[in-house]
Design a protein around this nucleic acid. Structure first.
Length: 474
RNA sequence: GGCGGCAUAGCCAAGUGGCUAAGGCGACGGUCUGCAAAACCGUUAUUCACCGGUUCGAAUCCGGUUGCCGCCUCCA
């Protein structure tokens, strides 16, 4: 059984065979840190993180690179507007990214390279492209000569003459062809710059990704991701300049994810039509947001709305309840009890895992994989409902552990809920009072106490074997 | 205008040639419960935007129509 991944270059699913036998190289185009991260940025990170986790689950060692583009017109603009340095603008937004990446349970990347810290690599790469005749210097700028690269446009499905028709020509351009793009830009007054063979200047937009991915992953690597809005021009240019420099296939799989929409339209920084993750995480449990994003395929566009978050929360709650139910039901069983071979629930668990793997092997179909986790949850609940016949307790526990494990592969359940959230003493006391009230059939008092506990943020469920208290979410 | 994608139940969402069209949310009925909650059982798409075509057979392939979205300019 092999993993198949859709490659946007060849526009079909291909069997995944790593380029390098030592590791799988993944590069996700990260943020240009001109502003706070929005859900779209985090979605790309989540999509990449899910692929990475799954590949690791399947036994691959993954070298995972997520970059920050911290040298850019808009960052400089922002810094000038605020009267602070571009570095401070960048750092502030990078810090915010890390904060929310952690909140969303995204695993740390192997490396987080920044453009500004790879100027030497960039200069060398630009020189290499020039020496092969694919780029030229013009008044301190260096441009990639699009016409010299025959396959230019094939990735994004564009033809040169069609592009030219709509090309914008700005005054003062030093390009030979309006479609040529800058690898290196001469410094303007008041901008940060670095010394280079072409005078003082700074990198163009796309070149940093080529330089940094090659440095950390080699000239050919496995998986390159990012949002679909990067297909043109960013990835088209990145691929052209990289392959022009090395003469080798750059990335083996291009896995651009669908975009996050808001009220039917794409979120965009330029139109201010977006939600920052900061705003969302203030209202929505990050795990719910993540579950929601995982419940559709990564290549499909997703719609963000508060209503959808509420539904996602209910759905996620079902999986969590199954694990909680299992923990409560098997809490006083001997932990060392073996699972008898051929026991029914064990077989169902193995079947669920098998299907989960099949779904994820097929281009990381997390939506389908989640469906199998719901099936497993139902099976667990059924067994508990049946009273856990002799010899099945260990199987129930193992099934719940498997549910948690597979969820964690998708990137949910990263917070360990085993110990069932420690309850404040006050809550424990109130639950005790309520139990005695119930024993005395003082229902009004019991309901009053339940309401009081709820106001403290906890829900009480009266189960046959006693009350179960859990934290309210949302 | 050019290129690309999508259209599956009240809502979300899998499924890309052939077993009963996954799963979730919601709704309704039942079991359990002091009432709830959780959970379980049952019901909820004779049909996959529309019209043609290919095929023994299509939600799945082909052509057309309509609608929505993205890219073509900085964007995850």
């Amino acid at each position: 059984m092999s993993i198949r991944i859709y490659d946007n270059m060849s526009r079909r699913k291909k069997e995944f065979v790593p380029v390098n036998s030592d590791y799988v190289g993944m590069y996700i185009c990260g943020m240009t840190v001109q502003d706070k991260p929005h859900i779209g940025h985090m979605y790309a990170s989540i999509a990449g993180d899910t692929m990475r986790r799954y590949l690791e689950f399947r036994g691959y060692g993954v070298r995972y690179v997520y970059n920050f583009t911290d040298v850019d017109d808009k960052i400089i603009q922002r810094a000038n507007d605020e009267g602070i340095s571009w570095k401070d603008v960048a750092q502030r937004n990078i810090d915010a990214y890390f904060k929310y990446a952690q909140l969303l349970g995204i695993k740390a990347a192997s490396v987080y390279p920044r453009a500004s810290e790879h100027i030497q690599e960039i200069i060398e790469l630009v020189g290499r492209i020039m020496s092969k005749g694919y780029a030229y210097e013009s008044g301190g700028d260096v441009y990639f000569a699009v016409e010299k690269w025959p396959s230019y446009g094939s990735f994004s499905g564009r033809k040169l003459d069609e592009l030219r028709a709509g090309a914008r020509v700005e005054p003062g351009e030093k390009k030979k062809n309006p479609l040529d793009f800058a690898l290196w830009k001469a410094a303007k007054e008041g901008e940060p710059y670095w010394e280079s063979p072409w005078g003082n200047g700074r990198p163009g937009w796309h070149i940093e990704c080529s330089a940094m991915s090659m440095k950390y992953l080699g000239e050919s690597f496995d998986i390159h991701g990012g949002g679909q809005d990067l297909i043109f021009p960013h990835h088209e240019n990145e691929m052209a300049q990289s392959e022009a420099a090395t003469g080798k296939r750059f990335a083996n799989f291009w896995v651009e994810n669908g975009l996050v929409n808001l009220t039917g339209e794409k979120m965009s920084k330029s139109t201010k039509h977006f939600f920052s993750v900061e705003d969302i995480c203030a209202e929505v449990d990050p795990e719910t947001l993540k579950f929601y994003l995982l419940s559709s395929h990564y290549r499909s566009p997703v719609e963000f709305s508060r209503e959808r978050m509420d539904k996602a929360e209910a759905a996620l709650g079902r999986l969590k309840n199954a694990m909680r139910n299992a923990a409560v039901a098997t809490g006083n069983l001997d932990p060392g009890e073996p699972v008898p071979p051929g026991e029914e629930l064990s077989l169902a668990t193995a079947e669920a895992e098998k299907r989960f793997v099949e779904a994820m092997d097929d281009d990381f179909n997390s939506a389908k994989a989640l469906g199998h986790l719901f099936d497993l949850a139902r099976t667990i609940n059924k067994q508990i409902e049946a009273g856990i016949p002799a010899g099945t307790g260990a199987a129930v526990r193992a099934a719940a552990a498997k549910l948690r494990e597979l969820g964690a592969v998708l990137g949910i359940f990263w917070k360990d809920e085993h110990g069932d959230e420690e309850l404040p003493d006050e809550v424990t006391a109130l639950v005790g009072q309520r139990e005695s009230a119930r024993r005395n059939k003082e229902w009004d008092r019991a309901d009053e106490l339940r309401l009081k506990i709820e106001k403290m943020g906890f829900l009480v469920e009266d189960r046959p074997k006693g009350p179960v208290v859990r934290k309210k979410t949302g």
